[in-house]
């Protein structure tokens, strides 16, 4: 995967960004009308979608995780599936299973909820490890193999998993190696005071969300994904910056294991998507810095004696110590 003689990315430094305006309009519309105060999470979700990764929302229940996922899928005109994880959830509950059709006298494959464009996996840490790993495998491979037959998942494909960090009893917290599969991890946070009062006054908007008209077509999203991957130029200076950031995490005295190469790769992809959203066809160090905490913090493994520390804060201090390339 990381061979040195891979084909260089096409050097078209002035390529136009396809459907950039549409994608930003989705964010703006949602943020203005439905998801007030969640613009940061919304942007990160869009970044994840554009870079083809998956999103892990870590927050207490009731802050709009589901609303966010639902609104996004509706606005994008994508199919939406939801998995509520419990300790007795089986892998086949996610992937689907073959059932015997007596009419046709043969087995018929019934697709599970994972066969949707946007899949919300609620409280992923409640599922038992076997189910978790089946899910994560599907996320990575973008296909499902059931009883020797392989089924491709629909494109575009985005998993939004949620995890309640406060709850510990009866959960199977994702190990760090599994966390690495998520491109971006973020919290949603409480909305600002005014906003929260407004929400309390106007009531839940879950109903309104159902009536959001799709703002983009599926093909446009796919084109935008391609564009974010191919048309956004990642210069040597910024590559060096990303490298220095990851290297700094590996040398830090609080950290047992820093950002992996996959993490660096994800960081670059997220930075590209971020640049795409900023309507720029090249990556600047600020793009990297904007995504490094959500894309990097969950990949760090702190030393046992430092485990009480907040990974985000540790990473933030590292980012501050690395010089931005300016010349």
């Amino acid at each position: 995967m990381y061979t040195m003689n891979r084909k260089p990315t096409p050097i078209n430094k002035d390529a136009a960004l396809a459907h950039q305006a549409e994608m930003t309009r989705v964010i703006d519309t949602l943020a203005e009308n439905y998801l007030q105060g969640k613009i940061r999470a919304l942007k990160l979700a869009m970044t994840t979608l554009l870079s083809g990764g998956h999103l892990l929302l870590e927050d207490i229940p009731g802050l709009g995780k589901t609303t966010l996922a639902l609104a996004l899928s509706n606005a994008l005109g994508l199919s939406f599936g939801r998995i509520q994880c419990t300790s007795d959830l089986l892998p086949s509950d996610i992937t689907g299973l073959s059932i015997f059709d007596r009419n046709d006298n043969r087995f018929r494959f019934v697709e599970g909820p994972i066969f949707n464009n946007i899949v919300l996996v609620d409280e992923i840490n409640r599922a038992m490890p076997k189910t978790q790993s089946a899910l994560l495998e599907a996320m990575e491979e973008r296909r499902v193999t059931v009883e020797g037959k392989t089924y491709s998942l629909p494109q575009p494909f985005l998993v939004i998993a949620t995890q309640n960090p406060a709850e510990q009893v009866g959960t199977y917290p994702l190990p760090e190696s599994q966390m690495d599969r998520f491109l971006i991890t973020t919290d949603i946070g409480y909305p600002p005071e005014e906003m929260e009062k407004m929400i309390i006054r106007d009531g839940s908007i879950r109903e309104d969300i159902r009536h959001i008209e799709p703002l983009v077509k599926k093909e446009e999203i796919e084109a935008a994904q391609r564009s974010a991957h191919e048309a956004v130029y990642l210069g040597d200076k910024v590559i060096d910056y990303i490298y220095r950031l990851t290297a700094a995490t590996r040398e830090h005295r609080y950290i047992a294991s820093g950002i992996s190469t996959r993490g660096g790769l994800g960081l670059a992809a997220a930075a590209k998507a971020s640049a795409f959203l900023a309507n720029r066809n090249y990556v600047v160090p600020e793009d990297v810095r904007d995504v490094v905490i959500p894309a990097g913090a969950h990949r760090l493994i702190l030393k046992p004696e430092q485990e009480a520390l907040d990974k985000k804060e540790v990473l933030r201090s590292i980012v501050e110590s690395v010089a931005v390339p300016l010349a």
Partner: peptide, 30 residues
């Protein structure tokens, strides 16, 4: 650790934004 665009925000000037666009456009496009 302050980048070009951060400085633009500090200066708060259209010209600074233009500067960052041209300068960064060359620098980060190698």
């Amino acid at each position: 650790n302050i980048g070009l665009n951060d400085m633009v925000r500090r200066i708060g000037d259209n010209r600074a934004e233009e500067f960052a666009r041209i300068y960064g456009g060359a620098l980060y496009r190698d």
